[in-house]
């Protein structure tokens, strides 16, 4: 089973191809623009180098965020259209799930944190299980102090990782029993996406192409302002 993974929901975009035997190849770029010029040329490069053609793909996996809105839309439009043209299944996996998976060898509570802009972060809590991690909370969005409050309330030894954790390191250091992950593990990756997608595909847990949506976790400014004026 060959799966193409596309993860473009953060400033570090990546694509990967892998099978049950592991990752066949991947391309990653940290300084691209969010309009995703990197994605298609990278997929083609990967396919040329690995001598895999689109017809060999059994499925497409996409990162659905939360993250950068434009990046998520580029990744979804690309992945959904490829899956649609090829008539293959598609799997969507959250960026925070992917990031937490990077820390699957830690026995502490795992908290991936991504920059949500406007002085907010996306985060969630996970713990180690055989073969990966399992989420123990909802996906959340809030200020760094909301995260601090959450950490204080949980009072567990916690590994914080991700671009958001590093960005707000000073504020977050106020909590007790926390450790920060390395900068190398601060973004979700297409390689993890492929690894996590394969078991789901085996269990036939995939979606209809039309049903996959980005995980925004925030309404548009217009909607927010509208509600504010209606209330006020």
């Amino acid at each position: 089973m060959l799966v193409l993974g596309i993860e473009t929901s953060t400033p570090q975009a990546s694509v990967a191809i892998g099978s049950e035997q592991g990752v066949v190849g991947s391309c990653l770029i940290s300084r691209g623009t969010t309009s995703g010029e990197f994605v298609l040329p990278a997929i083609q490069f990967l396919m040329n180098q690995t001598e895999i053609s689109y017809r060999n793909l059994s499925a497409v996996a996409v990162g659905v965020g939360p993250g950068l809105f434009t990046g998520m839309r580029v990744g979804l439009a690309t992945g959904k259209t490829l899956a649609q043209a090829l008539s293959v299944p598609i799997v969507g996996i959250a960026s925070l799930d992917l990031l937490a998976y990077e820390a699957r060898y830690s026995s502490k509570s795992i908290c991936p944190v991504l920059d949500a802009k406007r002085k907010e972060v996306f985060f969630g809590f996970y713990r180690q299980v055989p073969g990966g991690v399992t989420r123990t909370s909802e996906f959340m969005i809030g200020s760094p102090s909301r995260l601090v409050a959450e950490l204080t309330g949980r009072a567990e030894d916690t590994l914080l990782l991700g671009s958001g954790a590093l960005l707000y390191r000073k504020e977050l250091e106020a909590s007790e029993g926390i450790e920060f992950g390395s900068i190398a593990n601060s973004f979700p990756r297409a390689t993890s996406l492929v690894e996590l997608a394969i078991p789901r595909l085996m269990r036939e847990e995939y979606s209809r192409v039309f049903d996959i949506e980005p995980l925004y976790m925030r309404r548009s400014d217009a909607q927010l302002n509208w509600e504010r004026t209606k209330r006020g």
């Binding site: 997929i43 839309r73 439009a77 490829l82 043209a85």
Partner: peptide
């Protein structure tokens, strides 16, 4: 609108590439 344009452009690239 850039946010709208990227969607069509991404889909078009995917199609041109796969086809």
């Amino acid at each position: 609108l850039v946010g709208s344009l990227v969607v069509g452009v991404a889909a078009a690239k995917a199609l041109a590439s796969v086809l």
